Simulated scan of single mutants.
Amino acid sequence: MRYLLISLLIVFSACSSSYKHLQRTTGDVHCLDKFKPDFSNALYYTQVNVIGKHLSGLLLIKLMPDSSERMVFSNEAGFKFFDFGFAAEGGFTVYYIIDAMNKKAVITTLRKDFEIVMMQPYSMQNGFLKKDIDSAYNYYTFPQEKGFNYYITDAGCNNLIRLERASKRKAVVKIRMLDYKNGLLDSIGITHTNFNFNIGLKRLEKIDGSN
């Protein structure tokens, strides 16, 4: 399992990505709705490499009664690394984080990484389609406070190729979300292109014991 996660984290090169070849066109961004993960009750084996530290353990994502999503990352012994809350309308709460990770830049990066994966409604407003004139890819583009979130699909919007969080000039984060099963993602790989901050997740099972 460890080698699978490592392979997810090294699938991207560190080269900058240019978006100059993209052209805006008409298209329905709601075709992405079918790719929204079901994180109502999900458990992942997780590895995080950040600020020179390697952390591994279990990441629990659970839908709460108020429609927010709670995310708790702890080791196998139950020691918590962080405990976050994501509100559907964009609110974010840090319930707990270890001192070694309690830095504004780290927390902001984790928040943005997981918001794009969870396809938070507030971050998917004012979207539009851009076409890759050099290939058959669609870039569903969502402006953010700084830069853009891109959901990249094939021409028919049948397969989600990857996600990118980008400045105006280049990708700063590239994400693979692999193998949907009953609405759940089997594997997720998050790679930062400008510094050593990588996350790999491998689904274990639903909390109720079903696969």
Rank of each mutant, 00 (worst) to 15 (best):
S7V: 03
L8N: 09
I10G: 02
S17H: 13
L22Y: 14
L22I: 10
T26P: 00
G27A: 11
H30Y: 12
F35I: 02
K36E: 03
A42R: 04
Y44I: 01
Q47W: 05
V48A: 14
N49W: 09
V50P: 02
K53G: 14
L55F: 15
L60N: 06
L63D: 00
L63Q: 04
L63N: 06
D66K: 13
S68E: 05
F73A: 08
A77N: 04
G78A: 11
F79G: 06
K80G: 02
D83W: 10
F86E: 01
A87Y: 12
F92K: 05
I97Y: 10
N102H: 15
A105N: 11
T108I: 03
T109D: 04
L110A: 13
I116V: 08
Y122W: 08
G127R: 01
G127L: 06
G127K: 04
F128T: 06
D134H: 13
D134S: 12
S135T: 09
Y137F: 15
Q144T: 07
K146E: 09
N149H: 13
I152L: 10
N158P: 00
I161E: 03
I161L: 11
E164F: 01
A171P: 03
K181F: 06
D186E: 10
S187L: 05
S187W: 05
T191W: 09
N194T: 10
N196C: 07
L201C: 05
K202P: 00
K206F: 09
I207N: 01
